[in-house]
Amino acid sequence: MTAVLITGVGAVAEEPRTDGDPGPWFDPAAHLGRRGWKYFTPATRYLLAAANEALGRRHDDPPPAGVAAERFGVVTGTQYAIARVHRRMDTVLTGEGVHGISPAEVPGFSMNTPGSQLAISTGARAFSVTLTNPVTAGLEAVQFAVTALRTGRADVVVAAAADQAPEDHGARGEYDAAAAVVLSAGGRASGTAGATRPLATVTGGISRFLPPGPAGDLAPAALDRSAARVAALAPSPGGTDAVRLLVGAPPAAAPHAAAVRDAVAEALADRGVPVRDADAGGTRPARHCAVSGLLDLIGPARAGETALVLSISELGHLTAIGIHRADPVGPEFI
């Protein structure tokens, strides 16, 4: 099976602030230069900033070298891409009528526009797909990219996510962010220019649907089934690496996520795979909307750690990505 390598990562994220500073957390000019982003939505600007960092390019650079445009794809997760634009347009339409809408903002009313702007900016012509399941769409982008690399639809894919949280942080503690990882098919592409060595190898990705029952609990059989599949993404036992297990979910789904975490830890134990920092268990609050899981993946990817990263939504979506330290650089990775 095609080895999938992570060759670059990038992220921008708003964090809760306690200093009372009301200023913007993100300076587009610092990331994107002085021109060319005025009509982009905030989520689009974040996405470009994160993806450019992952690709090691500047916004006004030509498309990345090292991969043909037709073999280069983009997949983007988002849940709120159009939320604010939609509300503003609806207010304008029902108030002053259609002429109150500026044509320049119309593209912002399509969920795929952030991803499409990234594809335009980077010249990605293999595909540009936008995924929109709440919370999990960011990690789903990695699952999608890994699958597309394995079926030969591209040689390099940027898997990314971007969201602008609702006003007042959605009354549930959500924050803006974007993150991106560059994935390449080992043996087929060297990654984009500037990637000097792979950071990590992706073992695989899966998604499942595990809806909470009427009492908020998970059906045990379905939970075990899913946990076994997640555990199977870990490297085979016998290796020297213990697995770091990172499980993220919105605070409302924390009990649900804890049950999944315990079931996955048990399934790993059944396979003889040790969990690193097992005593430091627990789950992580997913505060960055559909970007959360991808943000969780970036740390271990950058460090080349063996890890299973899970993203879980309140509604029942579950996505997991497995990584381990990069395979030794072979002749295929030049």
């Binding site: 995924l131 399941n133 699952q143 899966i206 998604s207 499942r208």
Partner: peptide, 10 residues
């Protein structure tokens, strides 16, 4: 209960 994605490519 298996894999599931929502695709919004316009």
């Amino acid at each position: 209960g298996g894999p599931g994605q929502t695709l919004s490519t316009a």
